[in-house]
Design a protein around this nucleic acid. Structure first.
Length: 437
RNA sequence: GGAGGCGUCGCAUAGUGGUCUAGUGCGUUCGCUUGGAAAGCGAAUAGGCUGAAAGGCCUCAGAGGUUCGAAUCCUCUCGCCUCCGCCA
């Protein structure tokens, strides 16, 4: 969400942003609707003013005759068409919800993910003196992953973690939480079942309302009437990351400037319907409907340099974890076409998967400026009189399944065992996950 | 699942048809006072839209209705809480 005044004054830049981000939005229509909205509001104001004045005079009428005369006069007032105003407001809101943040000057312009730019690389893809297996084969042989039973019970993209697969995963999460806490982030386990506003506020709906056909979010209904939309009571959604729950923690609040920046990290189960990815990555742990993740978010004052600096810091913490885990990774700067509407500046981390022979997105760091805080109505006190919307940032700390894939594939031995990365050994109590022989 | 309660300007509350331009207390800020502070005294203290400004309009959870006029009456919706039952 942006300020309508800003939109009026920066139309050209916004049109450029709409084009470069590939958003379906007619800004001219928005400006037209805005004009109409202002005109109708003005009309309603004038009517209200005369009505209020008249009511006041009626209440002060000195006798019945005067009162009756004034009431008659009131009947003559022409009421503006407020129904029309409601419609205009609704259309205005719909269009406003789609207005993007103008991307940062350093963001490459591109149509899709092929326009992302590699800006940093740590390590090189590992060389093996044997043909490395992928995590599916490895996991099955080690009896730490079970996809057959996973889909039997959980359906498409279902999986079980077993034995050391569980300990590795929980170990990764503990490792990430400890790392974040050591960097001054407040740990939280937030709700994963949340109300609509939290997801809308963070930008997880493409429009004003949830649309199950395009939004990659599960809705939870507790009755048939809810499921069919007949009633909307208690409609809840499953979050795809801790981000919306962490950001919405402060929804509607005004924070003290001296308490900024607020740094939080959240551990949560994450649910993704993957509605637009039916045929993508159908095998293995790469793209699953539910997983565990530690997420980092930050709430900062409205200062672009500070926000960018913190974004870089958050990205570097994720990078450091990849390094400590011994995972070759690269950092990409995300281009306009691969960026969601609200983002100002974004980076992905990708780890190398020797078995699948590909890079795997293992993190995504985004700076939204005030696009989310306007939707969530989160401000801070800046000086004695001024209140400003905060800037909001988020970044993955560690996503469990993809990092697990990277560890299995990078640390495999010729015999199909897995060497446990040093930083995780404390959580497993062993140095090697041995294949049953 | 059953029963009941509640939703007012940061917090707590008052307000049952016009004098509400929403009162009071707490908190906060500023001033007076003081060597400095506390106390005391005085003042200020919601958000949104619109406007160059002055100002105007809207918002008492939300929507609709009754009325010349609604925080107040009616209907529905949403949200929260308590008790009972069931249960991890």
């Amino acid at each position: 969400m942006l300020d309508i005044k800003f939109i009026r004054e920066h139309t050209a830049e916004l049109k450029e942003a709409v084009k470069n981000k590939g958003i379906k939005l007619d800004l001219d229509e928005l400006l037209e609707v805005d004009k109409e909205r202002v005109a109708l509001t003005r009309e309603a104001e004038l009517f209200n003013r005369s009505k209020n004045e008249l009511s006041d005079r009626i209440s002060k009428a000195k006798d019945e005759t005067e009162r009756k005369a004034l009431i008659q006069e009131g009947r003559g007032l022409k009421e503006p068409d407020l129904k029309n105003l409601d419609g205009v407001k609704k259309r205005f809101d719909e269009l406003m919800a789609k207005v993007p943040t103008i991307p940062s000057p350093d963001t490459p312009v591109g149509r899709d993910e092929s326009g992302n730019k590699e800006i940093f690389r740590w390590g090189e893809p590992k060389e093996f003196d044997f043909e490395p297996k992928n995590h599916i084969e490895l996991g099955k042989a080690l009896d730490i992953l079970d996809f057959d039973r996973g889909s039997k019970v959980g359906g498409f993209r279902g999986y079980y973690l077993k034995n050391d697969g569980v300990l590795l995963t929980i170990g990764l999460m503990m490792y990430a939480l400890n790392k974040m806490v050591s960097r001054g982030f407040t740990p939280m386990i937030p709700p994963t079942l949340v109300k609509q506003f939290a997801l809308f506020g963070s930008g997880y709906f493409k429009g004003l309302e949830y649309d199950p056909n395009i939004d990659e979010i599960y809705q939870v209904a507790t009755s048939d009437k809810e499921a069919t939309g007949e009633i909307s009571k208690d409609k809840k959604f499953l979050v795809g990351t801790a981000e919306p729950s962490l950001l919405a923690y402060y929804a509607g609040e005004v924070l003290e400037g001296k308490n900024l920046p607020v740094k939080l990290c959240g551990y949560s189960q994450c649910y993704r319907s993957e509605i637009g990815s039916y045929s993508k990555d159908v095998k293995g742990l790469y793209r699953v409907h539910e997983f565990m993740k530690v997420e980092q978010v930050a709430i900062v004052e409205a200062n672009i340099e500070e926000a960018n600096k913190l974004q870089d810091e958050m990205t570097s913490i994720s990078g450091e974890m990849h390094e400590e885990l011994g995972l070759t990774y690269r950092r990409l700067q995300i281009c306009t076409g691969d960026m969601s509407p609200g983002k100002y500046r974004a980076f992905d981390l990708e780890a190398w998967l020797p078995g699948m022979k590909r890079w795997a997105e293992t993190g995504s760091a985004s700076n939204f400026l005030d696009w989310q805080s306007r939707r969530l109505n989160i401000k801070y006190v800046d000086g004695p009189e001024e209140r400003k919307y905060v800037y909001m940032l988020n970044n993955t700390a560690l996503p469990s399944p993809r990092v697990l894939i990277a560890i299995l594939e990078n640390y495999q031995t010729k015999d199909g065992d897995i060497v446990v990365p040093e930083v995780l050994r404390g959580y497993l109590g062993k140095e090697l996950i041995k294949k049953p022989r």
